[in-house]
């Protein structure tokens, strides 16, 4: 029998549930900590970002329209699939130079983190929403709604835990995400995209762009159909004008802890709606 020839993976983008190459045809090299070439990954362009935002926008009402319980179930399913791909995630982290034990620990923590956020899906409204004490014949309450399409600059460190810790609080409430990633988290992000594609997450809810975050973010910040940008993993030196451009359509700009976990991190991507409901005297 002929010797098996290894089939290397082509690392592509993840847009609207599909895995396209960059429309620009560009790639970039991903190296291990030792300098070995690991992959030629697709290098997303501004037009890929535009397509990803379009996919995220069209997926958003359907995702937000699901019951909170169902969104929690869908996210839990992602954790199940991640569990079955544990060895792949571990080897991706090992390739970035992480020791075996540290890599295993990060994978464990990442899956735990995701499950923790999945549990928040049908609880965040109670914790972050409220009934307001008002004087007058009104029942007054405030409840959270997703802000819409969020562009997430994924943190480089920790590569997997940071990625999941920034995506989960965005999508758990019904937002859709366009994740810009590059550097050490590239391979983890592409592997995560494969997990999302084979779980129950609808296409377009999470879109993954690999490449230069610094090249993509100014386009995201100026994009009039993006509602929020998470700059937690943004590179230094993003010009002030680029960030100021976000003011034109009143985007929420978020900077947070790359590996933290808190219901208030979900709150960063929510709009609060207050309703005055008349009641008789």
């Amino acid at each position: 029998m002929a010797e098996h020839m290894p089939v290397d993976k082509t690392f592509k983008l993840f847009i609207g549930g599909a895995f396209p190459r960059s429309e620009s045809g560009r790639t970039f090299q991903v190296h291990s900590a030792d300098g070995d070439l690991l992959a030629n990954a697709a290098k997303a362009s501004r037009k890929d970002l535009r397509e990803a935002v379009k996919a995220a926008r069209s997926a958003q009402p359907g995702w937000a329209g699901r019951t909170a319980y169902n969104r929690g179930q869908v996210l839990y399913r992602v954790a199940e699939v991640m569990e079955s791909r544990r060895s792949e995630f571990t080897s991706v982290l090992r390739a970035t130079g992480m020791a075996a034990r540290a890599a295993r620990t990060e994978v464990d923590r990442s899956i735990d983190r995701w499950v923790w956020y999945a549990g928040w899906a049908d609880k965040l409204h109670h914790v972050l929403g409220t009934v307001n004490p008002v004087v007058g014949p009104y029942f007054n309450f405030t409840f959270p709604e997703p802000t819409g399409v969020v562009v997430v600059a994924a943190p480089d460190d920790p590569p997997l835990l940071g990625l999941l810790s920034r995506i989960a609080p965005v999508i758990v409430s019904g937002n859709t995400a366009v994740v810009a990633t590059g550097g050490p988290s590239t391979l983890a992000a592409v592997t995560l995209a494969e997990v999302l594609a084979t779980s129950d997450v609808p296409g377009g809810v999470v879109n993954v762009l690999t490449g230069e975050k610094g090249e993509l973010l100014p386009w995201a910040l100026g994009h009039m159909d993006v509602n929020s940008v998470d700059l937690t993993g943004a590179p230094d030196g993003l010009e002030n004008e680029a960030v100021a451009a976000a003011a034109d359509n009143v985007k929420r700009i978020v900077r947070s802890d790359p590996a933290g976990a808190s219901p208030y991190m979900i709150g960063d991507f929510l709009e609060m709606k207050t309703v005055w409901h008349p009641i008789g005297r």
């Binding site: 535009r50 935002v53 926008r57 386009w219 100026g222 994009h223 009039m224 159909d225 993006v226 451009a245 034109d248 359509n249």
Partner: peptide, 14 residues
């Protein structure tokens, strides 16, 4: 056309 004018991607809100 808005994209050509402003250099930024527009959206259906505009």
């Amino acid at each position: 056309i808005q994209k050509l004018d402003t250099g930024r991607y527009s959206g259906p809100d505009y």
